[in-house]
Design a protein around this nucleic acid. Structure first.
Lengths: 212, 212
DNA sequence: AATAATTTTGGACAGTCGTCAAGATGGCTG
DNA sequence: CAGCCATCTTGACGACTGTCCAAAATTATT
């Protein structure tokens, strides 16, 4: 019997099958990473499984073998990508010994992300919007959103701590603010607005002391 | 010769044709409003011209007669809808005679919007995300974004004025904050989270005095 | 009333989509 | 070696897409 590709069915495995299961999962991630290339380029709506396959070393049948359907694939993709995302600032947060150091480290990473990973991030915003229409996306999206909020909160807490203060805002408001700024800057950056990145940096630099 | 449906070509009309032109434009808006019903239900990607036509009193051919293509139609739709949006709070802003009055009026409209026009707003977020991939959307989206920022700024300015202060934040940051909060609340509301609306109201109520 | 222009209709077209299943491949076990 | 099983390939299927067009219906103009 062919292995079920649906996440729900795959969770019930006996211990003996665990290594096989891990191999299966590793392959899923391999495919997801290949798919992310095309998804980041075209967005969710315009991307077909065939297009994904053509831009990768795999055939379109393999994707159907490892994923129950298109939604399953895309959920796996964004989940995998965002798992890396939420650790992006951790090194900066733990190593910074002063507010200035943290500020510069944070802003540096922020600019780097905006410029080098614009395609991946627009995919995230695409998916978050799709989740408003497609219930199948909601659970994953809400979960990722929560973890991003926590990521921002770690930065703010550390920043406040280094100044001997407490964050003057709720985690939700802080995340909304930074996410909103980032989203706007991303759109402008993608529209070839040269001032998008410096404007974002200046705004955040100005904002940080006022909210923590 | 059939009339060109592209916006660019239609702008060159002699004065005598102006009334005909207005009739043409009125029909466009009529069609756009019909299309918004389906677009708000299904989102940009899932909506086909045929589906729009079936859920309306028109045939799919008419849409091609009045719009050069799908993008043209959708741009017209969101433009039309957002033109109404940006005036939503104007009455509250001009009539409010105290901070409390403005706060309550604003929050009331905010809650009403979130609950009654959730479908239209998720379409806006959908389109804004699509603009990151589709250059044809960018001009309109950036323009609408600017006008929404101005709308928020009018509220904040008036709020500050009623308190004898000045807004302690930039227009961009303020809009990012409120837009981020609204977007998050909208997603939760659509996911049947009962606390989404009250949470948003509480957060904004708490935030207003701190930023103005 | 007759003619011309505009608007509307609904079907045809070529293409793409997700899905599926029958068969090929290759490693592993008995 | 033979049989088995997970993995992968390939082509086909029906449904759906945006676009286009020729003809019909409607409206405006002479």
């Amino acid at each position: 019997m062919a292995r079920q590709a649906t996440g729900a069915a795959r969770r019930v495995v006996v211990a003996a099958e665990a290594p096989r299961d891990e191999k299966f999962n590793a392959r899923r991630i391999e495919l997801a990473e290949a798919a992310l290339e095309t998804l980041g380029e075209l967005g969710f709506a315009r991307t077909s499984l065939r297009e994904i396959a053509q831009n990768s070393a795999f055939t379109h049948g393999v994707f159907h073998y490892y994923f129950s359907d298109k939604l399953d694939l895309i959920c796996c993709c964004v989940r995998h990508y965002k798992a890396k995302c939420v650790t992006r600032y951790d090194e900066v947060v733990t190593s910074a010994q002063s507010r200035d150091e943290l500020t510069e480290g944070f802003l540096g990473k922020l600019a780097e992300t905006l410029q080098n990973e614009a395609r991946m991030h627009r995919l995230w915003y695409d998916l978050r919007a799709q989740a408003m229409f497609e219930p199948a996306f909601r659970k994953d999206v809400l979960e990722i959103d929560k973890s991003l909020e926590a990521m921002i909160w770690r930065i703010a807490s550390r920043y406040a701590e280094l100044g001997g203060k407490r964050p003057a805002s709720s985690p939700a408001a802080l995340y909304a603010l930074l996410d909103g700024l980032f989203q706007s800057a991303l759109l402008r950056h993608l529209a070839n607005d040269e001032t998008a990145v410096p404007d974002l940096l200046a705004e955040v630099r100005r904002l940080l002391p006022t909210i923590c």
